[in-house]
Design a protein around this nucleic acid. Structure first.
Lengths: 168, 168
DNA sequence: GGAATTTGGTTGAAGCAACAACTAAAACCT
DNA sequence: AGGTTTTAGTTGTTGCTTCAACCAAATTCC
């Protein structure tokens, strides 16, 4: 190759290449699989479900939009649109935070809680059949460790796992 | 819970739950990371890059749309739109297959080939820094095996790895 | 205490993806 | 050979995401 003076790239070897192709295939197929299951069984997008589920796990069943955005890796804009839709569907309601006039809390309604309760079992079942039924015990631990290390590069502050709020 | 008569769901245990949260975080962050890198450095979406790269690896630098669709887990509709855009950008050209009047081949132009050559090193470098630099040797093999097993459930025919065309 | 900046969020426009409806070529079926 | 079905792809619409611009509350900095 009569290339320009770019430094020689560190290409992947065969083992890495195979692993990469498989990993990328998983990251393409897994989300779309969950997407279809939830759309079919609950009428929600995976993102909508994830938002509702995350809020449902807090003690007050309410969460700041900023916090939700950080934990879902979504822009505040995207979240605002999605929360707006979920609000008109009656699954949650927005109210201004009492301690900070800018911030708004998304609070699950009864219908929203019921929605989560109704759709969670099917979703978990899908996760189990797709992921955990395919793996033997040791591999669950391996997968967990590998993902933890990848997250070290992808999300150094561990914002997505909800551990980021104790930094200030 | 005064639930209806649904069969008790097989909930995840702690180890599985942790692994799951981490895996889902990876599937959220990895694509968006690759997306931004490619958008910034090459002006392409990850999907566009993937299409060009896949075609570039064939001997003729041409591929049937159906084949591309299968290997990228995309609908033919989506592919048609994307290929249309890539064509107007001058990266590839469509022509009807000589052996099948319905099928069309997407063929890389010189500009398209140059685009792949120009953007591949940066992309590989990104993949390496995000994924492989985070893992030690044994983990690459573990990851590969785990993904292979997940693909057994997600893609039984192994269409995405390009092994599906010998089934007729 | 007031100006500047930062933070939290909303809104509207533009682009991309999912879905449905459609065309045309090939294969299948007596 | 002719009618049906299947396959390959296109097109248009609708909805979601991204991006840029914007507003208001809070914080920072003299």
């Amino acid at each position: 190759m009569d290339d320009t003076s770019t430094p020689e790239p560190r290409w992947l070897n065969d083992e890495e290449r195979t692993a990469w192709l498989r990993l990328i295939a998983v990251t393409m197929l897994l989300p779309s699989r969950l997407e279809s299951e939830l759309k079919r069984d609950a009428g929600l997008s995976h993102f909508e479900y994830y938002v509702l589920a995350m809020i449902s796990e807090t003690p007050e069943r309410a969460l700041l939009l900023t916090e939700v955005a950080a934990r879902t890796n979504a822009s505040l804009s995207r979240l605002s649109h999605v929360v707006g839709r979920l609000e008109t569907q009656g699954f949650l309601s927005r109210c201004t935070s009492p301690t900070d006039g800018r911030a708004s809390l998304a609070r699950l309604t009864e219908a929203g809680w019921a929605k989560v309760v109704a759709s969670a079992p099917g979703h978990v079942e899908e996760v189990r059949t797709v992921v955990f039924d395919s793996l033997h015990d040791g591999q669950v631990e391996q997968l967990s460790a590998i993902c933890a290390q990848l997250l070290g590069a992808l999300d150094p502050q561990h914002v997505l796992l909800g551990l980021g709020e104790r930094l200030p």
